[in-house]
Design a protein around this nucleic acid. Structure first.
Length: 567
RNA sequence: UGGGGUGUAGCCAAGCGGUAAGGCAGCGGGUUUUGAUCCCGUCAUGCGAAGGUUCGAAUCCUUCCACCCCAGCCA
């Protein structure tokens, strides 16, 4: 018999499920629900960022995993801050991430008629009243965290009076802030959200979706749960700060003739170090010109990451790896970077591009000779197209790849030493030329015969491999090197301004780069690995006809940087 | 000092009374025409702390501590 120990533990490769997956599975198993419906409910008042990506992956992912559906609903109850510009960008971001919402796009504003009817319902049941307290007075009556509130003097108006007053609110007969409709719950509740919350307020503002039809708008608390019920959402997933609102969410569901009883569940929002995700801070970065718009490649917005060259697969994998829990956490940005490199390494075709060119003249190579080498598109895959590399007497290598002399740890070109030119010959440096200031402006080297695809016949192997481009046939281009936007792990912690933590070197412009000819076909958002440098993509906004501009998505992991800094 | 939450390695995170998964980062080594990738090894006598129950506790009980959220007619 086998003596292999039996175990019920999941195998090491099996990913354990998180608490929400467990809840959905339980509800399905117990027959609480027959199918799963979730929703992603952004307010169209800003661009989506990495934190939203987590929510999108969670809500759409859960629906996908359990064979259910996920709606895209714009939570547009505050017309002062919302606009169609944001609606469009959000749709694009969700689609780009690879998700498909069920049916048409929904708007909370689609339900304003029903919501208004339900407000009337509450009034008729004596569970809501029009309150004339000003915002300031309301705050005083609300009490504090440790002291109970007091009842509003308008709390006991008759149903008829409330009905008449609410109708006047709707008809625009009152000024903003003059009165509001409040749910009559409990001014002494320890949970402040239950101290007669405002459910309708006056805003004489045109709505991006309903136009001038309304001058009163429902609050988030009054709109959200009921919208979930209307759409038949089974699991309404939100972030932890809404936990205290859950009793209120349930109160409305219990006191209104809603068609379904959705349940709210909360999870911890995503935080990433060296990054900010608050809408206020992102907006400030844009408005004050610290970055070049919401889709600046340094922004943690989905549109910024897309332009930077991050891929949907990388982002989805990241969201998968960080998990879903109820504990506050700060994910290391290195985890995100790992996911980006992981996807790009597997899928980005290779190319060579010299960022800081240094001329190399091959003294023993004929003036008029040109060879063409064929290089693989990917070192570990054979399904990529090959590319042609022209080779001539004059080449360019990176200034970092040559030194007059160096210790044995330096595995690049040194006078008297050999190096392999990637996909081409081994060469040996003989001398270099300097300008009046002593800067090296040219390297003189010789080609070692018969070294394409094999080592030198004399047995002296090259120390390393460097990239290069042909001097007479390459694409001049610009490269934008990006680094993290902030130099502090938690920008703005303590009492400092987060702007003080901005990395002054988050963008480095290189205007004299040279790319191999195959890069003429580069398209925006399609990634390349510039060998030994990192992953890059063409920038659609900065590139012009005849002048390519590449964004560095992310560098390659660089163990040499660590070694060289130690000496 | 009211209410609601959360504490497992530098970071994320499994674990649900039977003796601490996995990933990221780090460190050491191997392969390599990318100092990349890949591969191998290493990394918690310890689960916020202290007591208690139990043959046995990260898991149960008690007390304490720390941190997060709530006093918008924002979401």
């Amino acid at each position: 018999m086998s003596d292999t120990p039996h175990t019920d533990k999941p195998s090491a490769t099996e990913k354990p499920s998180h608490f929400l997956q467990n809840i959905l599975k339980r509800d399905l198993d117990e027959g609480q629900v027959t199918s799963i419906t979730t929703r992603f409910p952004p307010e169209p008042n800003g661009y989506l960022h990495i934190g939203h990506a987590k929510s999108i992956c969670l809500n759409f992912g859960l629906a996908e995993q359990f064979g259910g559906q996920c709606n895209l609903r714009f939570d547009d109850t505050n017309p002062e801050k919302e606009s169609d510009e944001f609606v469009e960008s959000i749709k694009r971001d969700v689609t780009w991430l690879g998700f498909e919402w069920a049916g048409d796009i929904r708007f909370t504003s689609d339900y304003f008629d029903t919501l208004h009817e339900w407000a009337l319902e509450l009034i008729r049941a004596g569970k809501a009243y029009v309150c004339d307290l000003s915002p300031d007075q309301a705050r005083e009556y609300r009490g504090t965290l440790t002291e109970p509130g007091r009842n509003s003097p308008y709390r006991d108006r008759s149903v008829d009076e409330n009905l008449a007053l609410f109708e006047k609110m709707r008809a625009g007969e009152f000024a903003e802030g003059q009165c509001s409709l409040r749910a009559k719950i409990d001014m002494a509740a320890p949970n402040i959200n239950l101290r007669d919350p405002v459910i309708y307020r006056i805003k004489k503002v045109r709505h991006h979706h309903t136009g001038d039809k309304w001058c009163i708008y429902p609050s988030y608390d009054f709109a959200h749960g009921q919208s979930d019920a209307i759409e038949g959402i089974t699991h309404s997933i939100c972030t932890l700060e809404f936990e205290d609102h859950r009793p209120l969410y349930e109160w409305f569901i219990a006191n209104l003739p809603v068609p379904a009883e959705p349940k709210q569940y909360e999870f911890a929002r995503l935080n990433v170090n060296y990054t900010v995700t608050s809408k206020r801070k992102l907006r400030q970065l844009v408005d004050e010109g610290h970055v070049d718009g919401w889709n600046d490649p340094r922004m943690p917005t989905i549109s910024g990451m897309r332009r930077r060259g991050y891929t949907p697969a990388a982002l989805r994998n990241f969201c998968e790896r960080i998990g879903v829990t109820r504990s506050d956490s700060v994910v290391d940005v290195g985890m995100l970077e790992y996911c980006v490199r992981d996807d790009l390494d597997k899928n980005a075709p290779r190319a060579m591009c010299v960022l800081r060119p240094l001329k190399v003249t091959l003294t023993n190579y004929p003036e008029d000779k040109i060879e063409t080498f064929v290089a693989p598109g990917h070192p570990n895959r054979d399904d990529f197209a090959t590319r042609e590399l022209p080779f001539s007497r004059t080449l360019y290598i990176d200034v970092e790849d040559f030194r007059e002399e160096a210790n044995k740890k330096y595995k690049r070109l040194v006078i008297g030493k050999r190096v392999r030119l990637r996909n081409a010959y081994v060469i040996e440096a003989e001398d270099c030329v300097k300008d009046a200031d002593g800067n090296i402006i040219e390297v003189l080297a010789r080609v070692i015969e018969n070294t394409v695809g094999c080592d030198p016949e004399d047995g002296v192997k090259p120390k390393g491999v460097i990239h290069w481009v042909c001097g007479s046939n390459h694409i001049p281009c610009d490269v934008r090197l990006y680094d993290r936007l902030f130099i502090e792990a938690n920008p703005g912690s303590g009492d400092t301004d987060f702007l003080q933590a901005i990395n002054p070197e988050s963008l480095q412009l290189l205007n004299n780069c040279m790319a191999e000819p195959s890069l003429v076909d580069a398209k925006p958002e399609s990634a390349y690995q510039f060998e030994r440098e990192g992953y890059f993509c063409l920038d659609e906004h900065y590139s012009e006809q005849g002048r390519a501009v590449f964004n560095r998505t992310i560098s390659l992991r660089d163990s040499w940087a660590k070694i060289s800094q130690q000496h």
